[in-house]
Design a protein around this nucleic acid. Sequence first.
DNA 1: TCCATATTTCAATAATCCTTGAATTATTGA
DNA 2: TCAATAATTCAAGGATTATTGAAATATGGA
Lengths: 111, 111
Amino acid sequence: MDERQVITAFGSLAQETRLRVLRLLVQAGPEGMAAGAIAEEIGVSPSNISFHLSHLERAGLVEARREARSIIYSAGYSALRDLIRFLMEDCCAGDPRVVAPECCPPTIVCS
Amino acid sequence: MDERQVITAFGSLAQETRLRVLRLLVQAGPEGMAAGAIAEEIGVSPSNISFHLSHLERAGLVEARREARSIIYSAGYSALRDLIRFLMEDCCAGDPRVVAPECCPPTIVCS
DNA sequence: TCCATATTTCAATAATCCTTGAATTATTGA
DNA sequence: TCAATAATTCAAGGATTATTGAAATATGGA
């Protein structure tokens, strides 16, 4: 993941609708949700959700698959992982002497 | 950390100069760096680095302290932690049955 | 106090991004 | 094939944001 992709990804997350969509999909899990269901849940128009889902997809933060008439979106967990890695890379110059609890991102697990 | 703060924080990271500054400061560790040194390292004007450092500070992503004539900036590690937590909160609906490696952010430590 | 250093603030321009509704495409079932 | 559903694309607007250089503020040393 290069700098340009990371900037696009953070740009995606810096917007109310998209941030809500991504959290919704993170919570929904790998099964994902249809575009229409997302739009209804978030409370925006079809055209608007499409715009924001495209943005998130270009950033790699969500994945899309067709299922009958619907398009199902799910969170791009690996991109989220890469994003965090990019930010914290070589934290504290990798020097064990300055490693402190405040330097480290949390360990988060899904349960 | 509420939604508005999170959006401001991601907005901060969605810009080349600020992203580079934050990574530089994450790597520099808690000691931090003077504004002028950051500007020189990144290659931007004093006025420009000041604009971006203010943005990062408003977002809570960096902290500032005065030391003689310089103002020293350091990474706001706790805000970074909160950001990740906000994104991954209630991942996969907290259902252990759907927990999979792809749902979890990485465990990153500083060395 | 006076000067040099370090950084911030300000105003103006340029660029980017979000929203809206209408039109378009793709899929399914009658 | 025709109609209905699901989603995307397009163009125009209004709003937000980045960049620049000049002026202003704050600090430390002579």
